[in-house]
Nucleic acid binder design. Sequence first.
DNA 1: CATAGTGCTTCTAAAACAGAAGCAAGGAGA
DNA 2: TCTCCTTGCTTCTGTTTTAGAAGCACTATG
Lengths: 115, 115
Amino acid sequence: MPARTPRPGVPVRGSASGRPVMAALDLLGRRWTLRILWELHQAPAGFRELQRRCERMSSSVLSARLGELTDSRLIALHADGYRLTALGGDLVDALRPLDSWSHRWAAETDPGPSR
Amino acid sequence: MPARTPRPGVPVRGSASGRPVMAALDLLGRRWTLRILWELHQAPAGFRELQRRCERMSSSVLSARLGELTDSRLIALHADGYRLTALGGDLVDALRPLDSWSHRWAAETDPGPSR
DNA sequence: CATAGTGCTTCTAAAACAGAAGCAAGGAGA
DNA sequence: TCTCCTTGCTTCTGTTTTAGAAGCACTATG
């Protein structure tokens, strides 16, 4: 049984409280979810283009994530591909400081050999 | 082979670009990572308390995440438990708007039967 | 009619995760 | 010293999630 789409107000994986932020953390803490939102914020894209942009992410997972995000009304499919809804756009706006943070992180991270 | 800790400047899962934000999205898009940061922002906690707060999350995964976050210098272990570093605190600050967004999301989400 | 593009499903194998058990180290108390 | 308890953390087995190739139904274009 696949994990169901988290929604505010009901228990999610790791929290029975129903607190909205817990649902958000469950939803966003699934592989590719943050990345998909990020990509759609750069520009709308169809299924296959999204797959290309994320370096050939698995189609089965992409399909699952698109379903969850659509259920959650963060994205919607239009004639020109998937686009963020107003709600989804707000979420990415809320995440925008992440980009500038990541540069600070990079600046403070020793770029030596990996690991 | 376990996935290695993402770091800015080197390729990560789904992106060979080395762009810092891609490393951040890979790191944060792993189960429990966002939640752990969130919890530590509420208050520092030791291993077992963290496990309790996240409703008995698997100890093996908790251990892996703590290792990744420590490697990434977002958290550090002190006498009173794990705490966010300055860098980690900045990240959670960057994520703070997520909480208010989640309330808007809840307000616009029909609280009917799940799925 | 062929060709190529789309969104998306199905399948098998690999990776990640869940959860119970337990280990080594460090107190606190007797 | 000898329990007793707590800590961070590992190891193990079984389940869930993800990867990746293949392919289906549909639309458009030639």
